[in-house]
């Protein structure tokens, strides 16, 4: 059992679930808004790119020069702060543009639902199996003569009519529910989920996981609590070789997951309250998802996997 950080200083901006399941709306508190954890507001199309300067007085230069792959010609990029994991509060070390086709995709809940359903279902095997009358033991002999007994006529004690008899139309054998959702649908699901997370302030970008200063799980937990990241955090890096500190810290925390970009999926992003990406992970995600948009042959079976 993990001891969660109990009291959050500021109320979470998210709507809190009432016990009976109805949803209550909370009012966004001004003090919380002023904390500038929130990402900059969505820009109108005619605006310039970097409208906001870093509010924190950082001495080092901001990371602002990030070239977007397949730069969007007719949509404005979104912006996100780049934080560090060095201290509990962290510093803002950059303001990078994010591709609108990936981080500002129309949030199609039904596409996300299809992806999550696929993720759950394609691995599912139904092992239910019922024997038919032929497979039941015995039942080869006519239980009693056809006529004159006064009883109903039967040929076998294992027919479906009998108690203990075989199933007439029962489930037969292990049944696989495997299917592959099309590549386009899966890519769209990832884009919609990333956009939804980003819009709801549940997506944070970090310069690198190397910046985590301590391997202690408690430090990471306190860091997440301080930044209102929530109870579960999904850390995504570009490769599966993780920095030592974050690997050790996450090892003791079941609700904090480390994941490379190739493992990114809708289910995990929704399961965890917050998603934290490194800048390299953002680069790789954009590259892979834009590639899917620009494939020559969109329904090539080779690409489906």
């Amino acid at each position: 059992m993990i001891i969660r950080p109990v009291l959050l200083k500021e109320p979470s901006p998210k709507v809190m679930m009432h016990k009976t399941g109805t949803l209550l709306r909370t009012v966004f508190s001004r003090s919380w808004l002023a904390e500038s954890i929130r990402k900059p507001a969505l820009l109108p199309c005619a605006g310039t790119i970097s409208r906001y300067t870093a509010s924190s007085s950082s001495n080092s230069a901001l990371i602002t020069d990030r070239q977007l792959l397949y730069p969007p010609k007719y949509n404005t990029p979104r912006e996100a702060w780049v934080e560090t994991l060095g201290t509990l509060e962290g510093r803002k070390v950059g303001l990078i543009p994010l591709h609108p086709d990936i981080f500002a995709e129309f949030p199609r809940i039904d596409v996300i639902h299809e992806n999550v359903k696929w993720q759950k279902l394609y691995q599912h095997v139904d092992y239910a199996h019922q024997r038919t009358r032929a497979e039941m033991p015995g039942g080869g002999r006519k239980p009693w003569p056809q006529k004159k007994t006064g009883r109903a006529r039967h040929g076998s004690i294992r027919s479906p009519l009998f108690k203990g008899g075989g199933a007439a139309k029962g489930p037969r054998g292990p049944k696989s529910f495997f299917y592959m959702l099309d590549l386009q649908n899966r890519a769209k699901g990832l884009k919609c989920t990333l956009s939804a997370k980003f819009a709801q302030d549940d997506l944070h970008i970090v310069d690198s996981f190397e910046s985590l200063s301590s391997p202690e799980s408690q430090f990471l937990e306190a860091l997440a609590a301080k930044r209102n990241w929530g109870l579960s955090v999904l850390f995504v890096d570009d490769t599966d070789f993780m920095a030592k500190n974050i690997a050790l810290a996450c090892r003791g925390l079941p609700s904090f997951t480390l994941m490379p970009v190739y493992g990114l999926n809708c289910f995990s992003m929704l399961k965890h309250e917050t998603v934290v990406l490194t800048t390299r992970a953002v680069d790789k995600i954009e590259e892979r998802l834009k590639r899917v948009d620009n494939l020559l042959r969109q329904n090539d079976p080779r690409h489906a996997r």
Binding site: L42, C45, Y74, F106, I109, Q200
Partner: peptide, 28 residues
């Protein structure tokens, strides 16, 4: 205001005031 992507902006702005999308909120 004019230009591309306005309906998307509207949807995303709406999403900011709605509950967090979780596994329990989805519908096909």
């Amino acid at each position: 205001g004019a230009g591309p992507g306005r309906s998307v902006d509207y949807a995303l702005t709406l999403l900011r005031r709605l509950p967090r999308i979780t596994l329990g909120n989805l519908k096909g």
